[in-house]
Nucleic acid binder design. Sequence first.
DNA 1: ATAAAAAGTGTCCGATCTGGGATTTTTTGC
DNA 2: GCAAAAAATCCCAGATCGGACACTTTTTAT
Lengths: 81, 81
Amino acid sequence: MTTSSKINNPKELGQYLLEERKRLKLTQKEISEYTDVGRKFVLELEKGKPTAQIGKIFELLNGLGLELHLIKRGEADSWKP
Amino acid sequence: MTTSSKINNPKELGQYLLEERKRLKLTQKEISEYTDVGRKFVLELEKGKPTAQIGKIFELLNGLGLELHLIKRGEADSWKP
DNA sequence: ATAAAAAGTGTCCGATCTGGGATTTTTTGC
DNA sequence: GCAAAAAATCCCAGATCGGACACTTTTTAT
């Protein structure tokens, strides 16, 4: 199964990442050890930190098995390969 | 026609944003005036700056009419301890 | 072809903030 | 009750971002 979620702001990003981590039954510590980020970063990102750096976010997305897609407004169904 | 772009890292993000800005025939200055970011930020982001902050990136995406989607494929827990 | 305008790039300054590590406190779960 | 997880604090070297200015390249117009 493949799911897509539209993320509008840092707050929603954090909430989604938290939910996804829970689904995978991982702790912040496990995530931060597998990916190259600190536990504090995971903590703050999940809380919606707007100043988190994009490079670190990509590392975390990879660790969680998530892909980032950009879709032009009005073409929200276009991510399908 | 629908358009989807998978973005894997800051470099690809910058390249895509540059291309989209060109499609819209906007200048860096115009973008930075409509959104709440500086011209230098636009410049550096388009060059692939990995330390750009996510909150500002969301502002830019809105300005360009782009949506950010997170897509999950499978159950990416193969590495789970 | 030439000149002018626009776009892009780079650098300086400064207030503010990052993110990792370590430690401590609070919450959660069994 | 107890241990693990999560959250909250410090410290601090280093980086961000915006604004301003100077310079170069590209585009546009005559």
